[in-house]
């Protein structure tokens, strides 16, 4: 389970002064559920996900991931999380198998378990055709599969996806969406950020809309539809964020 409790992150910029990238964000995601974090570019989605993955440390507040505090026990949190984003690239000079094994070892898997896990994942994702190929020689689709294998190797109960389909072709994006859906079916708690509404409609059980670091709306898809009297998710976002944009422009 993931529980964000008043997560906040402030950065200091020489020109603009203090920036509140994330401001007092709280939400919960249960096992077997997908929480969609939506918002414009620069709204604070990536910073929130990075704090949940303990890549960044919160300035205030905290989050509990699988019973571990992201501030107090970041390494234990990371051992329970699989993090995938467009910014998580692969090591070009390692083969697909070496890369997955490397992350398995870093996650503390012993050699027999690691071998079994790697074989399972490579069979499941149909990766045996390129397991000995270097990552810099892989196609985009192969790279995405290797990234997925990397996040899955330690079988984490929590998965965090930050715009995982950005820049991918239809087939590869579809494979990723199917994979995320499979993860939910396997009982994992999933946080997912995207700009593509069809993906949200297909995957998300619960939605959070974030704007200028603040969580402006939070609820199940049906709850939000009822609250804003709109079926279209895009229109719901416009209704939530639109008035705020007008205020800030005024």
């Amino acid at each position: 389970m993931i529980e964000a409790r008043g997560l906040s992150k402030r950065f200091h910029d020489r020109k603009r002064g203090e920036i509140r990238a994330v401001d007092n964000v709280s939400f919960t995601c249960h096992p077997g559920r997908i929480y969609g974090l939506l918002g414009a570019n620069g709204a604070g989605k990536t910073t929130t996900l990075r704090m949940l993955a303990t890549i960044l440390e919160p300035t205030d507040g905290t989050a509990i991931v699988c019973g571990h505090d992201v501030v107090e026990q970041p390494e234990k949190v990371r051992a329970n999380v699989g993090f995938l984003s467009t910014a998580t690239a692969l090591y070009p000079r390692l083969t697909a198998q070496e890369l997955v094994e490397y992350f398995g070892r870093l996650n503390g898997l012993d050699e027999p378990t690691l071998k079994k896990r790697v074989d399972d994942i490579f069979n499941r994702l149909d990766m045996n055709g390129f397991r000995e190929r270097r990552c810099d020689k892989l196609s985009t689709g192969m790279k995405q599969k290797t990234s997925i294998a990397r996040t899955l190797v330690h079988d984490p109960p929590v998965m965090i996806f930050d715009e995982p389909t950005t820049g991918l072709d239809v087939m590869t994006a579809r494979a990723i969406i199917t994979f995320i859906s499979d993860c939910r079916d396997h009982g994992k708690a999933i946080i997912f950020s995207t700009h593509i509404m069809s993906e949200v409609e297909r995957l998300c059980d619960h939605i959070g809309i974030i704007h200028e670091g603040k969580l402006m709306a939070d609820g199940t898809v049906s709850e939000l539809r009822a609250k804003y009297a709109e079926h279209n998710l895009e229109e719901i976002i416009v209704k939530v964020v639109g008035p705020l944009l007008k205020n800030s422009e005024a």
Binding site: A89, Y91, L106
Partner: peptide
């Protein structure tokens, strides 16, 4: 530059 820093930082490695 290669974008692997975030990958490694997301592992449990200290």
């Amino acid at each position: 530059e290669r974008g692997t820093m975030e990958t490694i930082l997301s592992s449990p490695l200290s």
